[in-house]
Nucleic acid binder design. Structure first.
Length: 422
DNA sequence: TCTGGGGTCCTAGGACCC
DNA sequence: TCTGGGGTCCTAGGACCC
């Protein structure tokens, strides 16, 4: 028997975070929008019941919003990130180790807890999280991560589990897998689901029983591993140390479309600045930068173009001014006049810890530039983003995104903490 | 008029080398 | 007349995740 793994997952996370600080959101339909206030990325139970789907564009929902009094919020990642810390703190004592999988999901290594009643253990953890944060959660327990995800989904969907599903029980596991749609399994996306269904494999149970060789042939080693995990053979452990990150991105849709190279460079300059900040805050340097921009692909009837070029950064760098220069070089090469651009971004690849980077013969005075970047980060950290900017960013920033219904930074800005009146 | 942003991993295919 | 095989590295792009 392999060590049990649990997955704790917050219910309707962003909405639950908002509700923690605004009681008027409780019991009514609520949706939280993506960056740029484009589409719904979190929905309360009430909103789900009204048929609102993940990713629905908000401008398709206007009628429903009006008819049902749905509360609509911009996303507030500072709040969600801070609440995550509190959730983790509440879970800490309940596991040997944890792996943060996403902002609202954490895998727990339950090695050493096997002798306990793990369902009761999980319930105690849920209670703790609820008390400390007001956020409701569900827990799945199993021998592999994939099964723990599946158990979690069952705990969420099926009220008979009352929030905690234990897949170490063969009967429970088989029963759920027999009816679980193959396309809802973690790691099976649209493309793979279509192929599987064409073969008559429509449930988690049928995928588990698929011959390994056939799985590899149909998908890749990824699908082969997934089948193994469904059979209870772990192919991924709970990672105690976060692996070194490999890439980094700053991408945005524009608030208003961009038609000129200057405007595009204004946006790319801002993104490259931010990318440099992110690199420095992680103590990393990058070896490659890609700049891209594209037209609105949701409107295929309009002329489409995607420009994208990659440039090598040598020496490797986290210097915003060098990143901006590289982004300009890439953008110049990829630019095509005459299109209506709606999104752009800067991607950084092949990241290395700054103190591990190879030195080159031709490095200039890096010391001085590092101090300049340090000063920049300090100014922008203290006085707010974009206090100190480069001229090419421009001052009007027409491309900047919308975020019109954002809740306050309840927990992270002193002037926005909630006030309690007696 | 208005459809997110930021990640990971894998594969195929070209370039290059001996 | 005859025209290799195998390895590595890199990149673009697909698929998937939340």
């Amino acid at each position: 028997m392999t060590a049990p793994i649990a997955l704790i997952d917050c219910n309707n996370y962003y909405v639950s975070c908002e509700r923690a600080f605004d009681a008027s959101l409780v019991g009514v339909p609520v949706i939280v929008l993506s960056n740029n206030d484009g589409c719904a990325i979190a929905r309360s139970q009430e909103a789900k019941a009204l048929g609102i789907k993940m990713g629905d564009p908000i401008h398709h929902l206007r009628d429903k919003v009006r008819a049902h009094g749905i509360r609509v919020l911009s996303s507030n990642y500072t709040l969600y990130g801070d609440m995550q810390r509190r959730v983790l703190a509440a879970c800490e004592a309940f596991a040997r180790d944890v792996e943060i999988y996403s902002i609202d999901e954490t895998f727990l290594d339950l090695t050493g807890f096997e002798d306990r009643d793990l369902v009761a253990h999980a319930r105690a953890m849920r209670d703790q999280v609820l008390r400390w944060t007001t956020i409701p959660t569900c827990v799945g327990i199993a021998g592999t991560k994939t099964l723990a995800k599946l158990a979690n989904a069952a705990a969420k969907k099926d009220s008979r589990f009352d929030g905690v599903a234990d897949f170490r029980d063969d009967a429970v596991r088989h029963d759920v897998m027999r009816a679980f749609p193959v396309g809802d399994i973690w790691g099976v996306g649209g493309a793979t689901a279509r192929k599987l269904i064409a073969l008559g494999i429509t449930t988690a149970g049928e995928l588990r029983d698929m011959p390994m060789k056939q799985a590899k042939g149909l998908g890749t080693v990824v699908l082969e591993r997934l089948v193994a995990e469904l059979r209870g053979v772990p192919s991924a452990a709970v990672e105690m140390v976060a692996p070194q990150r490999r890439g980094m991105a700053v991408t945005r849709s524009f608030g208003t479309p961009v038609l000129t190279f200057d405007r595009l460079m204004g946006a790319l300059t801002e993104y490259a600045m931010r990318a440099g900040e992110k690199l420095r805050s992680h103590g990393l340097v990058a070896s490659r930068l890609t700049a891209f921009f594209h037209t609105n692909s949701n409107k295929p009837e309009r002329p489409q173009y995607t420009g994208s070029r990659t440039v090598t950064l040598h020496p490797m760098t986290s210097d915003s001014l060098e990143l901006i220069a590289a982004a300009r070089k890439a953008a110049e090469r990829a630019w095509r006049e005459g299109y209506v651009y709606t999104k752009a971004g800067v991607l950084l690849d092949d990241l290395v810890a700054a103190d591990m980077r190879p030195r080159t013969l031709f490095e200039g005075d890096t010391e001085k530039r590092a101090r300049l970047m340090g000063a920049l980060d300090e100014i922008n950290g203290k006085f707010g983003k974009w206090t100190a900017v480069t001229a090419s960013q421009g001052f009007k920033r027409e491309w900047k995104l919308r975020s019109e219904m954002r809740s306050p930074a309840w927990t992270t800005r002193i002037d926005e903490v909630p006030t309690v009146r007696a």
